[in-house]
Amino acid sequence: MDLLQLRYFCKIARLEHITRAAEELHVSQPALSKTLKLLEQELGTELFDRTGKFIRLNNYGRVFLKYAEQSLEALENGKRELADMSSGQAGDIRLAFPVGSHVVPALLSRFRQQYPDITFTLIQHFGPSDPPRFDLCISSLPLQIPRVESLPLLTEELFLAVPADHKLAGRTSIRLEDASEEHFVTLRTGNDLRERTDSLCRIAGFNPKRIFESDDPATVRGLIRAGLGIALVPAVSWDGSVGEHVRLIRIEQPVCERTIGISWLEDHYLSKACLIFREFTVAYFHELALANAPGDSSV
């Protein structure tokens, strides 16, 4: 058994598709199939159930995948620690941020002013069924990924954003149920803010009437500004991004808020660069929370 076999097996196990795995690994399909067969012969059992052209990870494969991934991760941790010993305050950080697209660029800009030798690989879109391998992740909490540790960064209120000429624009506060007949602009299913919007509307006794869905927060903000619908928007992480033609209305009931945090995997080695960035991010979001203390909620 060698590392190549383990890497190939893990890729096939994640995709459950020989052809796609071969394409992503940049190897021929026959070579990949042969490598898998040799591994199964050495282990003395088949790791996949095969039906025609389709393969599915079986119980033996699921058990072995856990240990294969742990082995590869341990080796990667060793490589990262060795690199850490010689790099000082340099290095690359794999940063995932399914939330915070409006504030993360400013965070990175300020951080790079102090630590120009630290670079980033940015991961923005992923789902709970296919989480990426990241060093740190800025997201809503709890992050639905196994074996993860988190620190809360801030808890932010969610406001109802309406166009400036909307009939509700003159209200300073509202019960969410009062918007049950309005047209909503939302992000796509799977996005945290979308799921939170749907959940809060259900608590208020209705399902939102979605007129537009988008996978881009900037598009959602633009559609509200254009007078095409309303939405729940975060008070801090979207602060200042909706524009002067939008009014933000405080929601009295139900309680509408979310907590943003920074997370990392339990079995993942955090480099010096990651630890520096984590500490910097905690301080940065603390400043954001202070700057956005309760005040005028109109934009």
Rank of each mutant, 00 (worst) to 15 (best):
A179I: 10
S180D: 05
E182T: 02
T186A: 11
T186S: 10
T186L: 03
T186E: 14
G190S: 12
N191V: 11
N191K: 12
D192Y: 14
D192K: 04
L193T: 11
R194F: 02
S199F: 01
K209Q: 13
K209C: 10
R210P: 03
R210L: 09
R210S: 11
F212A: 03
D216G: 05
P217S: 13
A218G: 08
R221F: 14
G222H: 06
R225N: 12
A226L: 14
L228Q: 08
L228V: 12
I230R: 03
A231M: 03
A231Y: 02
V233H: 00
W238D: 15
G240Y: 00
S241G: 08
V242Y: 08
H245S: 14
V246F: 06
R247P: 01
I249H: 03
E252L: 15
Q253F: 09
P254E: 14
E257V: 07
E257R: 05
R258E: 13
R258P: 00
T259Q: 08
I260V: 15
I262C: 06
I262W: 07
S263F: 07
E266T: 12
S271I: 03
S271K: 08
K272Q: 13
A273Q: 06
F280Q: 09
T281E: 08
T281V: 12
V282S: 07
Y284G: 03
F285E: 07
F285G: 02
H286W: 08
E287N: 00
E287M: 00
L290I: 05
A291G: 08
A293W: 02
A293D: 15
S297A: 11
S297H: 00
V299Q: 05
